[in-house]
Amino acid sequence: MDILKDIIEQHFISPEKQEILILLKKYDLADLILKHGTLLIEQIQKHLSTNNKAPLPILSSSASNLLVAINSKVTLITDPFEKRKIQQAVANLSVRMFASIIKLFPNDALEVLKAVQEGLQSTSSLWSYDYNDIDQLMHLSGFYEMIQSIDGSNAAKKIKKIEQGPISFLKWTKKCDTGFLTSELKEKGWIKSQNGFVKLFDNQDESLKVHWNTNYRYELARLLFMLHEKDFIRPVPSKGYFAIAERHIVDFAEKPLPKNALKKLSSKMTQEPDKYKEIISEVDELINKLNSR
């Protein structure tokens, strides 16, 4: 499991690492990916004992086999949110694995990626998978264009950053209208304006600033925790909801929150509920009202 943990540690932000590993284990994907990666390493090592060129047939076959194996598990997942999160996580892990292989063969970088793509394309055609979705999840087209733009000898150094995916945001699940929530927050003096706060949801504007009275920062942490817990909000595509909120929330003087502040505050309240029972009670009462609408 060390190989898989290492990849997750490098690729995912802190709030998500354990969640991703739990999901992978839940659907029997952790051992599958680990075994596949271990087998691929053994095959490459055996190949390199007699040939310094990239083992293209092995890589194409490996990509194909991994896709079929993963899909056989993913199709059984009934929760669409968890299914998509698993697809995104597996895609990111797979890209990391193949990027590491490309670094071993810098002069064959383009051929390696072609072999992986061809394996995925032929398998998708055979099994009626949506290759376009696979390509988007793994950012293969952008990866391919990047390799084409650089010469092979520099590929290993330059293929480190995969094309950035969609900007993460907080999705309001529409269990109820946001109007009641924002009116309550405004009445309590926690927010500057209703229209301003509602922009925190379903918004991919990276420059967005949402004002919150940071005298009530514990209330904010509890509110976000409960909104997520009760499925009023979801992080899209798969980033931590606290981290997304911290990108946008500022105090009334435009000062941003410290990094990881909300997660730490939420953890403190979880660990010491008696100490923060009034805050917890007030926020939970608001969520209960929201839940009943």
Rank of each mutant, 00 (worst) to 15 (best):
Y27W: 15
I249N: 08
Q43N: 11
F197T: 06
P80V: 09
F180K: 13
F169R: 07
Y144M: 11
L185K: 10
L4V: 14
L262Y: 02
L220T: 08
K5R: 14
N195Q: 09
K264Y: 06
K157G: 02
K26G: 01
T178A: 05
R96Q: 04
Y218I: 05
I86V: 15
D205F: 02
E278P: 01
L181F: 08
E42K: 13
M97Q: 09
E145P: 00
I58F: 02
G37W: 13
Y216W: 12
S193T: 15
R96K: 14
Y216Q: 11
D130L: 05
Q88W: 02
K192N: 10
V112E: 06
D202W: 05
K103I: 01
Q136W: 06
T214K: 14
I102E: 12
M146D: 09
L66M: 13
D202G: 00
Y276Q: 02
N154F: 03
K25T: 06
N65H: 06
P166Y: 09
E163G: 01
N288Q: 15
G152L: 00
S238N: 14
Q43Y: 10
K230G: 00
K17M: 09
Y144Q: 07
Q87W: 10
K230M: 13
F105Q: 03
I279M: 06
G165Y: 05
K158F: 12
E19F: 03
K275Y: 12
P258Y: 03
H248G: 09
P55L: 07
H11R: 14
N71G: 02
D6K: 12
L24V: 06
E206S: 14
V95F: 04
L32K: 05
Y218F: 15
D6C: 00
V90P: 02
Y129W: 09
A221S: 14
N92P: 00
E82T: 09
K277G: 01
E118L: 04
P55H: 11
Q43E: 15
N132T: 06
K175M: 05
K209V: 04
T270N: 11
L120T: 10
V250T: 13
A156S: 13
K259E: 10
E19A: 12
K277I: 07
K161A: 09
P256G: 08
H36S: 08
D28C: 04
V74A: 04
K17F: 01
E229M: 02
L290E: 07
Y131K: 02
G152F: 03
K175S: 05
D151Q: 12
G240D: 13
P57Y: 07
K192S: 15
H228R: 10
M226L: 12
K259R: 12
Q43G: 07
N52W: 00
H139V: 01
L104W: 10
Q88L: 13
I191M: 08
Y241V: 03
